[in-house]
Design a protein around this nucleic acid. Structure first.
Lengths: 109, 109
DNA sequence: ATTGTTTATCGCAATATTACAATGAAAAAT
DNA sequence: ATTTTTCATTGTAATATTGCGATAAACAAT
């Protein structure tokens, strides 16, 4: 039905899924790469760097802000975006330990 | 339009997005955790472990196979699933270097 | 007050995803 | 041959996502 049954999974599983969603679209990967590569905040010129309409970029930014992995600081008339260091580290840790639960050496297949 | 413009992004960005999709739904996270925790392949009892219908689980498995992160070996009447070690490592590397491009210490925000 | 600049939001259209019942397919077991 | 078991696929329904034009909002500068 397009409706995910979040209530039947653990908090951790839902959080992993949400963090993964931040990277689950090439446009958002591109945005995050742009933000991560700069030391300073990127003030709005994301639209110029991406082959997408301003409304579309704004929507992806909104989703990234919902997840928490970026921050937006209003600096009228611009808005400056940057990586949220805390959540970025949370994501690094989360995926790090996730990948570590598989130790390799399957006995079959 | 619900249609991602894959052609306007790099191969790498599209691959990251695809790998992230494997983890972008709590049911798939649960499946991957189950498979990763076992040494041996899991032969079909995934449906019993998950609060989802058999058809739904099968659909998620199909998506994970498309991405390549799991393998399915037919062993009639069962099918044994396991992590694809190569792609699992690819994902680990991919996300590892992705998280490393951000060095922290933003000068603003 | 008006204009210009920048970003967010709304509304719409199209496609994608999620979920499941029902059915089909494939092979072992009876 | 029929039944049973297991998994995939099909069909259907509902919700989510993606994309963009148009518009609104917020503020600076004139």
């Amino acid at each position: 039905m397009g409706v995910t049954k979040t209530e039947i999974f653990t908090e951790q599983q839902n959080r992993v899924a949400d963090l993964a969603k931040a990277f689950a679209h090439p446009a958002r990967v591109a945005i995050l790469q742009l933000l991560a590569q700069k030391k300073a905040c990127v003030c709005g010129d994301l639209v110029d760097e991406l082959p997408l309409a301003q409304a579309t970029v704004s929507q992806h930014l909104k989703e990234l802000k919902r997840i928490g992995i970026i921050k937006g600081e209003i600096n009228p008339p611009r808005v400056c975006y940057c990586i949220n260091e805390v959540v970025w580290e949370e994501a690094r840790q989360t995926f790090g330990s996730l990948f570590d639960i598989y130790v390799g050496a399957s006995t079959c297949c």
